[in-house]
Write a protein that binds this DNA or RNA. Structure first.
Lengths: 248, 248
DNA sequence: GTGCCCCTTTGATCCACGTCAACGTGCCCG
DNA sequence: CGGGCACGTTGACGTGGATCAAAGGGGCAC
Protein backbone atom coordinates (compact mmCIF):
# COMPACT_ATOMS: atom_id res chain seq x y z
CA UNK A 1 0.00 0.00 0.00
CA UNK A 2 1.26 3.52 -0.71
CA UNK A 3 1.90 5.67 2.32
CA UNK A 4 0.38 9.07 2.84
CA UNK A 5 3.16 10.93 1.08
CA UNK A 6 2.88 8.78 -2.03
CA UNK A 7 -0.86 9.23 -2.16
CA UNK A 8 -0.43 12.98 -1.96
CA UNK A 9 2.13 12.89 -4.78
CA UNK A 10 -0.27 10.95 -6.94
CA UNK A 11 -3.09 13.34 -6.24
CA UNK A 12 -0.84 16.25 -7.09
CA UNK A 13 0.21 14.68 -10.33
CA UNK A 14 -3.40 14.30 -11.34
CA UNK A 15 -3.93 18.01 -10.85
CA UNK A 16 -0.69 19.11 -12.38
CA UNK A 17 -0.31 16.35 -14.97
CA UNK A 18 3.34 16.17 -15.77
CA UNK A 19 5.10 14.82 -18.79
CA UNK A 20 8.32 15.39 -16.90
CA UNK A 21 7.71 12.58 -14.47
CA UNK A 22 5.79 10.31 -16.79
CA UNK A 23 7.52 7.12 -17.79
CA UNK A 24 6.18 7.25 -21.32
CA UNK A 25 8.74 9.73 -22.64
CA UNK A 26 10.12 7.43 -25.22
CA UNK A 27 6.77 6.44 -26.63
CA UNK A 28 4.79 9.62 -26.43
CA UNK A 29 5.09 13.18 -27.64
CA UNK A 30 8.05 14.27 -25.49
CA UNK A 31 10.40 11.94 -27.35
CA UNK A 32 13.75 13.60 -27.85
CA UNK A 33 12.97 16.78 -25.95
CA UNK A 34 15.31 18.31 -23.41
CA UNK A 35 14.29 18.55 -19.78
CA UNK A 36 13.36 22.23 -20.09
CA UNK A 37 11.33 21.54 -23.19
CA UNK A 38 9.42 18.76 -21.49
CA UNK A 39 8.57 21.17 -18.71
CA UNK A 40 7.03 23.51 -21.26
CA UNK A 41 5.04 20.58 -22.57
CA UNK A 42 3.79 19.97 -19.03
CA UNK A 43 1.99 23.27 -19.13
CA UNK A 44 -0.01 22.43 -22.17
CA UNK A 45 -1.24 19.07 -21.04
CA UNK A 46 -4.36 20.63 -19.67
CA UNK A 47 -5.89 17.71 -17.86
CA UNK A 48 -5.97 14.03 -17.36
CA UNK A 49 -9.15 12.20 -17.86
CA UNK A 50 -10.12 8.82 -16.49
CA UNK A 51 -12.45 6.56 -18.40
CA UNK A 52 -14.21 3.39 -17.40
CA UNK A 53 -14.35 0.42 -19.67
CA UNK A 54 -16.87 1.06 -22.43
CA UNK A 55 -16.83 4.83 -22.00
CA UNK A 56 -16.35 7.08 -25.02
CA UNK A 57 -13.41 9.48 -25.07
CA UNK A 58 -15.03 11.26 -27.99
CA UNK A 59 -17.62 10.54 -30.63
CA UNK A 60 -17.78 11.11 -34.35
CA UNK A 61 -19.30 14.51 -35.00
CA UNK A 62 -18.11 16.17 -31.80
CA UNK A 63 -16.06 19.32 -32.12
CA UNK A 64 -12.36 18.69 -32.09
CA UNK A 65 -10.29 20.60 -29.59
CA UNK A 66 -7.58 18.37 -28.26
CA UNK A 67 -5.62 15.28 -29.01
CA UNK A 68 -5.17 12.67 -26.32
CA UNK A 69 -2.20 10.63 -25.22
CA UNK A 70 -3.02 7.28 -23.67
CA UNK A 71 -1.50 7.27 -20.21
CA UNK A 72 -2.80 3.87 -19.23
CA UNK A 73 -5.37 1.48 -20.59
CA UNK A 74 -6.48 0.48 -24.02
CA UNK A 75 -8.72 2.04 -26.66
CA UNK A 76 -10.34 1.31 -29.97
CA UNK A 77 -11.43 3.77 -32.62
CA UNK A 78 -14.23 3.02 -35.03
CA UNK A 79 -16.08 4.54 -37.93
CA UNK A 80 -19.78 4.09 -38.59
CA UNK A 81 -21.57 4.08 -41.92
CA UNK A 82 -25.11 5.50 -42.09
CA UNK A 83 -26.50 2.02 -42.63
CA UNK A 84 -25.04 0.81 -39.37
CA UNK A 85 -21.96 -0.95 -40.63
CA UNK A 86 -18.99 -0.42 -38.38
CA UNK A 87 -15.28 -0.71 -38.88
CA UNK A 88 -12.70 -0.65 -36.13
CA UNK A 89 -9.90 1.54 -37.50
CA UNK A 90 -7.38 0.98 -34.77
CA UNK A 91 -6.45 -0.06 -31.25
CA UNK A 92 -4.42 2.36 -29.16
CA UNK A 93 -2.27 1.56 -26.20
CA UNK A 94 -0.07 3.37 -23.70
CA UNK A 95 1.84 6.29 -25.20
CA UNK A 96 -0.14 6.40 -28.43
CA UNK A 97 -2.12 9.40 -29.58
CA UNK A 98 -5.84 9.63 -30.22
CA UNK A 99 -7.79 12.24 -32.11
CA UNK A 100 -5.51 13.10 -35.02
CA UNK A 101 -8.43 12.51 -37.37
CA UNK A 102 -10.21 15.51 -35.93
CA UNK A 103 -7.72 18.12 -37.10
CA UNK A 104 -8.81 18.11 -40.72
CA UNK A 105 -12.40 19.23 -40.27
CA UNK A 106 -12.26 20.35 -36.64
CA UNK A 107 -14.75 17.59 -36.00
CA UNK A 108 -13.95 14.09 -34.84
CA UNK A 109 -14.51 11.61 -37.63
CA UNK A 110 -14.55 8.48 -35.50
CA UNK A 111 -15.44 7.21 -32.06
CA UNK A 112 -12.84 6.45 -29.44
CA UNK A 113 -13.86 3.95 -26.76
CA UNK A 114 -11.95 2.68 -23.75
CA UNK A 115 -11.65 -1.11 -23.81
CA UNK A 116 -10.58 -1.15 -20.17
CA UNK A 117 -10.42 1.44 -17.42
CA UNK A 118 -8.03 4.00 -18.84
CA UNK A 119 -6.49 7.37 -18.40
CA UNK A 120 -5.55 9.93 -21.03
CA UNK A 121 -3.77 13.27 -21.12
CA UNK A 122 -5.67 15.92 -23.06
CA UNK A 123 -3.47 18.18 -25.17
CA UNK A 124 -5.35 21.20 -26.53
CA UNK A 125 -4.41 21.27 -30.16
CA UNK A 126 -3.92 25.00 -30.59
CA UNK A 127 -1.47 24.93 -27.67
CA UNK A 128 0.40 22.08 -29.27
CA UNK A 129 0.68 24.03 -32.51
CA UNK A 130 1.87 27.04 -30.57
CA UNK A 131 4.51 25.16 -28.67
CA UNK A 132 5.68 23.29 -31.73
CA UNK A 133 6.41 26.65 -33.34
CA UNK A 134 8.85 27.22 -30.51
CA UNK A 135 10.31 23.77 -30.14
CA UNK A 136 11.53 22.34 -33.44
CA UNK A 137 12.04 18.91 -31.98
CA UNK A 138 8.46 18.80 -30.83
CA UNK A 139 7.22 20.02 -34.19
CA UNK A 140 9.21 17.43 -36.06
CA UNK A 141 8.28 14.64 -33.72
CA UNK A 142 4.61 15.49 -34.03
CA UNK A 143 4.88 15.38 -37.80
CA UNK A 144 6.54 12.01 -37.53
CA UNK A 145 3.73 10.72 -35.37
CA UNK A 146 1.12 11.84 -37.89
CA UNK A 147 3.11 10.36 -40.72
CA UNK A 148 3.52 7.10 -38.82
CA UNK A 149 -0.24 6.95 -38.54
CA UNK A 150 -0.52 7.25 -42.32
CA UNK A 151 2.03 4.49 -42.84
CA UNK A 152 0.23 2.30 -40.33
CA UNK A 153 -3.04 2.83 -42.17
CA UNK A 154 -1.39 1.83 -45.43
CA UNK A 155 -0.30 -1.37 -43.74
CA UNK A 156 -3.87 -2.07 -42.72
CA UNK A 157 -5.06 -1.32 -46.24
CA UNK A 158 -2.52 -3.84 -47.52
CA UNK A 159 -3.77 -6.36 -45.00
CA UNK A 160 -7.42 -5.80 -45.89
CA UNK A 161 -6.78 -5.71 -49.60
CA UNK A 162 -4.46 -8.64 -50.16
CA UNK A 163 -4.28 -10.99 -47.19
CA UNK A 164 -6.34 -14.03 -46.36
CA UNK A 165 -7.93 -14.57 -42.96
CA UNK A 166 -5.06 -16.39 -41.26
CA UNK A 167 -2.48 -14.01 -42.59
CA UNK A 168 -4.48 -11.10 -41.24
CA UNK A 169 -4.70 -12.61 -37.80
CA UNK A 170 -1.01 -13.48 -37.82
CA UNK A 171 -0.14 -9.91 -38.80
CA UNK A 172 -2.40 -8.64 -36.05
CA UNK A 173 -0.83 -10.81 -33.36
CA UNK A 174 2.69 -9.95 -34.47
CA UNK A 175 1.85 -6.27 -34.40
CA UNK A 176 0.45 -6.50 -30.87
CA UNK A 177 3.46 -8.52 -29.78
CA UNK A 178 5.80 -5.88 -31.09
CA UNK A 179 3.93 -3.05 -29.43
CA UNK A 180 3.78 -4.85 -26.10
CA UNK A 181 7.50 -5.50 -26.38
CA UNK A 182 8.19 -1.80 -26.96
CA UNK A 183 6.36 -1.17 -23.69
CA UNK A 184 8.43 -3.60 -21.73
CA UNK A 185 5.94 -6.43 -21.66
CA UNK A 186 6.42 -9.96 -22.86
CA UNK A 187 6.51 -10.33 -26.63
CA UNK A 188 5.02 -13.79 -26.39
CA UNK A 189 2.27 -13.58 -23.83
CA UNK A 190 -0.50 -11.04 -23.45
CA UNK A 191 -4.14 -10.44 -22.81
CA UNK A 192 -6.32 -9.23 -25.62
CA UNK A 193 -8.43 -6.32 -24.56
CA UNK A 194 -10.89 -6.64 -27.40
CA UNK A 195 -13.51 -9.20 -28.36
CA UNK A 196 -13.33 -11.53 -31.35
CA UNK A 197 -15.90 -9.31 -32.99
CA UNK A 198 -13.73 -6.22 -32.60
CA UNK A 199 -10.70 -8.05 -33.93
CA UNK A 200 -12.84 -9.22 -36.83
CA UNK A 201 -14.09 -5.74 -37.54
CA UNK A 202 -10.55 -4.42 -37.59
CA UNK A 203 -9.37 -7.23 -39.85
CA UNK A 204 -12.38 -7.19 -42.17
CA UNK A 205 -13.54 -10.62 -40.98
CA UNK A 206 -16.51 -12.05 -39.12
CA UNK A 207 -16.03 -13.09 -35.53
CA UNK A 208 -16.52 -16.77 -36.41
CA UNK A 209 -13.66 -16.58 -38.88
CA UNK A 210 -11.41 -15.00 -36.27
CA UNK A 211 -12.33 -17.69 -33.80
CA UNK A 212 -11.65 -20.45 -36.32
CA UNK A 213 -8.27 -18.94 -37.21
CA UNK A 214 -7.35 -18.85 -33.52
CA UNK A 215 -8.34 -22.50 -33.17
CA UNK A 216 -6.35 -23.51 -36.18
CA UNK A 217 -3.25 -21.63 -34.97
CA UNK A 218 -3.64 -23.52 -31.73
CA UNK A 219 -4.01 -26.88 -33.48
CA UNK A 220 -0.86 -26.19 -35.43
CA UNK A 221 1.08 -25.26 -32.33
CA UNK A 222 1.66 -21.65 -33.31
CA UNK A 223 -0.03 -20.20 -30.27
CA UNK A 224 -1.87 -21.17 -27.12
CA UNK A 225 -5.15 -19.32 -26.67
CA UNK A 226 -7.60 -19.41 -23.90
CA UNK A 227 -10.23 -16.75 -24.22
CA UNK A 228 -8.38 -13.44 -24.17
CA UNK A 229 -5.09 -14.88 -23.04
CA UNK A 230 -2.64 -15.48 -25.89
CA UNK A 231 0.76 -17.08 -25.80
CA UNK A 232 2.83 -17.12 -28.96
CA UNK A 233 4.68 -20.43 -29.23
CA UNK A 234 6.31 -20.15 -32.63
CA UNK A 235 6.83 -16.58 -33.73
CA UNK A 236 8.92 -17.65 -36.72
CA UNK A 237 6.16 -19.80 -38.18
CA UNK A 238 3.70 -17.02 -37.52
CA UNK A 239 5.86 -14.66 -39.54
CA UNK A 240 6.37 -17.14 -42.34
CA UNK A 241 2.63 -17.63 -42.56
CA UNK A 242 2.38 -14.11 -43.90
CA UNK A 243 4.68 -14.56 -46.89
CA UNK A 244 3.68 -18.12 -47.82
CA UNK A 245 0.37 -17.21 -49.32
CA UNK A 246 -1.35 -19.52 -51.79
CA UNK A 247 -3.50 -16.89 -53.40
CA UNK A 248 -1.90 -15.51 -56.58
CA UNK B 1 0.54 28.99 -80.43
CA UNK B 2 1.99 31.12 -77.62
CA UNK B 3 4.02 34.09 -78.73
CA UNK B 4 7.62 34.61 -77.74
CA UNK B 5 6.78 36.57 -74.63
CA UNK B 6 4.45 33.89 -73.31
CA UNK B 7 7.03 31.21 -73.93
CA UNK B 8 9.57 33.20 -71.99
CA UNK B 9 7.14 33.62 -69.11
CA UNK B 10 6.54 29.90 -69.02
CA UNK B 11 10.25 29.16 -69.05
CA UNK B 12 10.77 31.61 -66.25
CA UNK B 13 8.05 30.05 -64.18
CA UNK B 14 9.72 26.67 -64.54
CA UNK B 15 12.89 28.07 -63.13
CA UNK B 16 11.32 30.17 -60.45
CA UNK B 17 8.30 27.98 -59.72
CA UNK B 18 5.73 30.21 -58.18
CA UNK B 19 2.83 29.37 -55.94
CA UNK B 20 1.80 32.98 -56.33
CA UNK B 21 0.73 32.60 -59.90
CA UNK B 22 -0.39 29.00 -59.70
CA UNK B 23 -4.09 28.40 -60.08
CA UNK B 24 -4.14 25.63 -57.48
CA UNK B 25 -4.22 27.93 -54.45
CA UNK B 26 -7.46 26.63 -53.18
CA UNK B 27 -6.51 22.99 -53.44
CA UNK B 28 -2.88 22.99 -52.50
CA UNK B 29 -0.77 24.10 -49.58
CA UNK B 30 -1.17 27.87 -49.98
CA UNK B 31 -4.85 27.68 -49.05
CA UNK B 32 -5.80 30.62 -46.90
CA UNK B 33 -2.45 32.39 -47.01
CA UNK B 34 -2.06 36.10 -47.66
CA UNK B 35 -0.28 37.29 -50.77
CA UNK B 36 2.93 38.00 -48.88
CA UNK B 37 2.83 34.60 -47.25
CA UNK B 38 2.40 32.87 -50.57
CA UNK B 39 5.46 34.71 -51.81
CA UNK B 40 7.45 33.24 -48.96
CA UNK B 41 6.14 29.85 -49.93
CA UNK B 42 7.39 30.49 -53.46
CA UNK B 43 10.92 30.48 -52.16
CA UNK B 44 10.68 27.08 -50.65
CA UNK B 45 9.25 25.31 -53.62
CA UNK B 46 12.69 24.37 -54.79
CA UNK B 47 11.96 22.91 -58.17
CA UNK B 48 9.42 21.52 -60.50
CA UNK B 49 9.89 18.10 -61.87
CA UNK B 50 8.31 16.64 -64.98
CA UNK B 51 7.54 12.95 -65.20
CA UNK B 52 6.52 10.83 -68.13
CA UNK B 53 3.81 8.27 -67.83
CA UNK B 54 5.09 5.26 -65.93
CA UNK B 55 7.98 7.12 -64.34
CA UNK B 56 8.56 6.89 -60.59
CA UNK B 57 8.53 10.07 -58.53
CA UNK B 58 10.07 8.12 -55.67
CA UNK B 59 10.41 4.53 -54.60
CA UNK B 60 9.95 2.75 -51.31
CA UNK B 61 13.24 2.74 -49.45
CA UNK B 62 14.59 5.99 -50.88
CA UNK B 63 15.59 8.69 -48.45
CA UNK B 64 12.85 11.20 -47.81
CA UNK B 65 13.67 14.83 -48.32
CA UNK B 66 10.71 16.58 -49.81
CA UNK B 67 7.02 16.34 -50.25
CA UNK B 68 5.52 16.93 -53.67
CA UNK B 69 2.48 18.83 -54.82
CA UNK B 70 0.90 17.57 -58.01
CA UNK B 71 0.88 20.49 -60.42
CA UNK B 72 -0.58 18.56 -63.33
CA UNK B 73 -1.17 14.94 -64.15
CA UNK B 74 -2.13 11.90 -62.15
CA UNK B 75 -0.30 9.54 -59.79
CA UNK B 76 -0.74 6.33 -57.91
CA UNK B 77 1.05 5.21 -54.77
CA UNK B 78 1.56 1.58 -53.94
CA UNK B 79 3.06 -0.64 -51.29
CA UNK B 80 4.80 -3.93 -51.97
CA UNK B 81 4.99 -6.98 -49.75
CA UNK B 82 8.17 -9.09 -49.82
CA UNK B 83 6.31 -11.88 -51.53
CA UNK B 84 5.37 -9.65 -54.43
CA UNK B 85 1.85 -8.77 -53.47
CA UNK B 86 1.03 -5.18 -54.24
CA UNK B 87 -1.60 -2.79 -52.99
CA UNK B 88 -2.39 0.57 -54.51
CA UNK B 89 -2.85 2.89 -51.53
CA UNK B 90 -4.07 5.94 -53.38
CA UNK B 91 -4.49 7.99 -56.53
CA UNK B 92 -3.37 11.62 -56.44
CA UNK B 93 -4.50 14.39 -58.69
CA UNK B 94 -3.84 18.08 -59.21
CA UNK B 95 -3.23 19.99 -55.98
CA UNK B 96 -2.79 16.90 -53.84
CA UNK B 97 0.34 16.11 -51.86
CA UNK B 98 2.61 13.12 -52.22
CA UNK B 99 5.26 11.82 -49.87
CA UNK B 100 3.73 12.39 -46.44
CA UNK B 101 4.44 8.76 -45.62
CA UNK B 102 8.17 9.47 -45.73
CA UNK B 103 8.24 11.84 -42.77
CA UNK B 104 7.96 9.16 -40.10
CA UNK B 105 11.10 7.20 -40.88
CA UNK B 106 12.84 9.64 -43.21
CA UNK B 107 12.48 6.94 -45.83
CA UNK B 108 9.69 6.63 -48.35
CA UNK B 109 7.45 3.73 -47.50
CA UNK B 110 5.71 3.43 -50.84
CA UNK B 111 6.23 3.99 -54.54
CA UNK B 112 4.76 6.96 -56.37
CA UNK B 113 4.24 6.50 -60.10
CA UNK B 114 2.92 8.94 -62.70
CA UNK B 115 -0.10 7.49 -64.52
CA UNK B 116 0.18 10.15 -67.21
CA UNK B 117 2.75 12.78 -68.09
CA UNK B 118 2.81 14.92 -64.98
CA UNK B 119 4.49 17.74 -63.19
CA UNK B 120 5.12 18.18 -59.48
CA UNK B 121 6.50 20.90 -57.22
CA UNK B 122 9.10 19.63 -54.79
CA UNK B 123 8.87 21.14 -51.32
CA UNK B 124 11.91 20.34 -49.16
CA UNK B 125 10.40 19.20 -45.92
CA UNK B 126 12.76 20.95 -43.52
CA UNK B 127 12.00 24.24 -45.29
CA UNK B 128 8.31 23.56 -44.94
CA UNK B 129 8.71 22.96 -41.22
CA UNK B 130 10.75 26.13 -40.95
CA UNK B 131 8.25 28.27 -42.75
CA UNK B 132 5.31 26.75 -40.91
CA UNK B 133 6.92 27.93 -37.67
CA UNK B 134 6.62 31.46 -39.03
CA UNK B 135 3.26 31.26 -40.71
CA UNK B 136 0.56 29.86 -38.42
CA UNK B 137 -1.91 29.50 -41.25
CA UNK B 138 0.51 27.37 -43.20
CA UNK B 139 1.29 25.24 -40.17
CA UNK B 140 -2.36 24.67 -39.43
CA UNK B 141 -3.24 23.98 -43.02
CA UNK B 142 -0.45 21.47 -43.33
CA UNK B 143 -1.71 19.68 -40.22
CA UNK B 144 -5.14 19.61 -41.74
CA UNK B 145 -3.80 18.07 -44.91
CA UNK B 146 -2.04 15.31 -42.98
CA UNK B 147 -5.12 14.70 -40.90
CA UNK B 148 -7.27 14.58 -44.01
CA UNK B 149 -5.02 11.87 -45.33
CA UNK B 150 -5.63 9.85 -42.18
CA UNK B 151 -9.37 10.30 -42.47
CA UNK B 152 -9.24 9.32 -46.13
CA UNK B 153 -7.34 6.17 -45.24
CA UNK B 154 -9.96 5.29 -42.64
CA UNK B 155 -12.55 5.60 -45.37
CA UNK B 156 -10.61 3.17 -47.52
CA UNK B 157 -10.27 0.79 -44.58
CA UNK B 158 -14.05 0.94 -44.14
CA UNK B 159 -14.48 0.24 -47.82
CA UNK B 160 -12.07 -2.69 -47.79
CA UNK B 161 -13.38 -4.07 -44.53
CA UNK B 162 -17.13 -3.90 -44.95
CA UNK B 163 -18.21 -3.25 -48.53
CA UNK B 164 -18.98 -5.66 -51.32
CA UNK B 165 -17.51 -5.32 -54.79
CA UNK B 166 -20.18 -3.10 -56.34
CA UNK B 167 -20.34 -0.84 -53.33
CA UNK B 168 -16.59 -0.39 -53.50
CA UNK B 169 -16.65 0.56 -57.14
CA UNK B 170 -19.57 2.93 -56.57
CA UNK B 171 -17.68 4.59 -53.72
CA UNK B 172 -14.61 4.87 -55.92
CA UNK B 173 -16.48 6.49 -58.80
CA UNK B 174 -18.29 8.90 -56.52
CA UNK B 175 -15.01 9.88 -54.91
CA UNK B 176 -13.40 10.55 -58.28
CA UNK B 177 -16.44 12.49 -59.41
CA UNK B 178 -16.27 14.69 -56.35
CA UNK B 179 -12.57 15.37 -56.75
CA UNK B 180 -12.93 16.19 -60.43
CA UNK B 181 -15.78 18.55 -59.55
CA UNK B 182 -13.60 20.34 -57.00
CA UNK B 183 -11.13 20.93 -59.84
CA UNK B 184 -13.70 22.44 -62.13
CA UNK B 185 -14.26 19.38 -64.29
CA UNK B 186 -17.50 17.62 -64.99
CA UNK B 187 -18.83 15.61 -62.07
CA UNK B 188 -20.42 13.15 -64.46
CA UNK B 189 -17.90 12.50 -67.16
CA UNK B 190 -14.21 11.71 -66.92
CA UNK B 191 -11.37 9.56 -68.09
CA UNK B 192 -9.89 7.00 -65.77
CA UNK B 193 -6.14 7.25 -65.72
CA UNK B 194 -5.64 3.82 -64.23
CA UNK B 195 -6.19 0.28 -65.46
CA UNK B 196 -8.82 -2.13 -64.16
CA UNK B 197 -6.06 -3.93 -62.37
CA UNK B 198 -4.98 -0.78 -60.54
CA UNK B 199 -8.56 0.01 -59.58
CA UNK B 200 -8.88 -3.57 -58.39
CA UNK B 201 -5.72 -3.38 -56.35
CA UNK B 202 -6.91 -0.19 -54.69
CA UNK B 203 -10.34 -1.68 -53.97
CA UNK B 204 -9.06 -5.08 -52.87
CA UNK B 205 -10.63 -6.81 -55.89
CA UNK B 206 -9.39 -8.71 -58.91
CA UNK B 207 -9.50 -6.95 -62.25
CA UNK B 208 -12.19 -9.32 -63.55
CA UNK B 209 -14.44 -8.39 -60.67
CA UNK B 210 -13.92 -4.70 -61.39
CA UNK B 211 -14.72 -5.27 -65.03
CA UNK B 212 -17.87 -7.22 -64.20
CA UNK B 213 -19.03 -4.52 -61.81
CA UNK B 214 -18.54 -1.90 -64.52
CA UNK B 215 -20.56 -4.02 -66.95
CA UNK B 216 -23.36 -4.50 -64.47
CA UNK B 217 -23.51 -0.77 -63.67
CA UNK B 218 -23.80 -0.19 -67.40
CA UNK B 219 -26.56 -2.81 -67.80
CA UNK B 220 -28.49 -1.15 -65.00
CA UNK B 221 -28.15 2.29 -66.53
CA UNK B 222 -26.07 3.74 -63.72
CA UNK B 223 -23.15 4.65 -65.92
CA UNK B 224 -21.89 4.48 -69.47
CA UNK B 225 -18.40 3.06 -69.76
CA UNK B 226 -16.22 2.60 -72.74
CA UNK B 227 -12.75 1.61 -71.78
CA UNK B 228 -11.38 4.43 -69.66
CA UNK B 229 -14.16 6.86 -70.46
CA UNK B 230 -16.86 6.96 -67.78
CA UNK B 231 -20.12 8.86 -67.76
CA UNK B 232 -22.24 8.77 -64.64
CA UNK B 233 -25.91 8.60 -65.62
CA UNK B 234 -27.61 8.19 -62.26
CA UNK B 235 -25.57 9.53 -59.41
CA UNK B 236 -28.43 9.09 -56.96
CA UNK B 237 -28.74 5.37 -57.60
CA UNK B 238 -24.98 5.07 -57.35
CA UNK B 239 -25.09 6.67 -53.92
CA UNK B 240 -28.00 4.54 -52.78
CA UNK B 241 -26.13 1.43 -53.86
CA UNK B 242 -23.71 2.06 -51.02
CA UNK B 243 -26.26 2.03 -48.22
CA UNK B 244 -28.53 -0.72 -49.56
CA UNK B 245 -26.22 -3.54 -48.77
CA UNK B 246 -27.49 -7.07 -48.34
CA UNK B 247 -24.64 -8.34 -46.21
CA UNK B 248 -25.47 -8.15 -42.49
C1' DG C 1 -22.39 -18.41 -4.25
C1' DT C 2 -25.12 -18.52 -8.21
C1' DG C 3 -27.42 -17.15 -12.17
C1' DC C 4 -27.53 -14.66 -16.29
C1' DC C 5 -25.66 -12.83 -20.28
C1' DC C 6 -22.16 -12.01 -23.29
C1' DC C 7 -18.47 -14.03 -25.51
C1' DT C 8 -16.62 -17.89 -27.84
C1' DT C 9 -16.42 -22.15 -30.23
C1' DT C 10 -17.78 -25.38 -33.66
C1' DG C 11 -20.53 -27.43 -37.41
C1' DA C 12 -23.28 -27.23 -41.85
C1' DT C 13 -24.41 -24.76 -45.74
C1' DC C 14 -24.20 -20.94 -49.08
C1' DC C 15 -22.51 -17.48 -52.11
C1' DA C 16 -19.52 -13.59 -53.71
C1' DC C 17 -15.55 -13.27 -55.56
C1' DG C 18 -11.33 -15.47 -57.14
C1' DT C 19 -9.38 -18.35 -60.64
C1' DC C 20 -8.69 -20.10 -65.14
C1' DA C 21 -9.46 -19.61 -69.83
C1' DA C 22 -10.61 -17.70 -74.24
C1' DC C 23 -11.73 -14.08 -76.97
C1' DG C 24 -12.26 -8.80 -78.24
C1' DT C 25 -10.47 -4.24 -78.87
C1' DG C 26 -8.07 -0.16 -79.19
C1' DC C 27 -3.71 2.00 -79.37
C1' DC C 28 1.01 2.61 -80.23
C1' DC C 29 4.96 2.01 -83.01
C1' DG C 30 7.19 0.92 -86.92
C1' DC D 1 -1.67 1.69 -92.25
C1' DG D 2 -1.06 -2.71 -90.30
C1' DG D 3 0.60 -5.84 -86.78
C1' DG D 4 1.39 -6.74 -82.06
C1' DC D 5 0.42 -6.36 -77.41
C1' DA D 6 -1.40 -4.66 -73.36
C1' DC D 7 -5.78 -4.02 -71.65
C1' DG D 8 -10.58 -5.32 -71.18
C1' DT D 9 -14.63 -8.41 -71.34
C1' DT D 10 -17.10 -12.52 -70.53
C1' DG D 11 -17.99 -17.35 -69.24
C1' DA D 12 -17.48 -21.62 -66.35
C1' DC D 13 -16.11 -23.30 -62.22
C1' DG D 14 -13.92 -23.54 -57.46
C1' DT D 15 -13.35 -21.97 -52.74
C1' DG D 16 -12.59 -19.02 -48.65
C1' DG D 17 -15.07 -16.93 -45.70
C1' DA D 18 -19.98 -15.37 -44.59
C1' DT D 19 -24.13 -16.94 -42.74
C1' DC D 20 -27.10 -19.60 -39.90
C1' DA D 21 -27.54 -22.34 -35.95
C1' DA D 22 -26.71 -24.35 -31.57
C1' DA D 23 -24.21 -25.45 -27.68
C1' DG D 24 -20.67 -24.45 -24.09
C1' DG D 25 -17.88 -21.41 -20.72
C1' DG D 26 -16.51 -17.44 -17.85
C1' DG D 27 -17.00 -13.31 -15.48
C1' DC D 28 -19.64 -10.00 -13.23
C1' DA D 29 -23.73 -8.43 -10.56
C1' DC D 30 -26.48 -9.25 -7.00
Amino acid sequence: MPNRKAVQAITLSVVKTACSNCNLHELCLPLGLSHEEVEKLDELVSARRRLKRGEHLYRAGETFGAIYAVRSGFFKTDVLLEDGREQVTGFQMTGELLGLDGISTETHSCNAVALEDSEVCAIPFSHLEGLSREIHTLQHHFHKVMSREIVRDHGVMMLLGTMRAEERLAAFLLNLSQRFTARGYSPAEFYLRMTREEIGSYLGLKLETVSRAFSRFQEEGLIAVQQKHVRILDIGKLKRLMSHHTRD
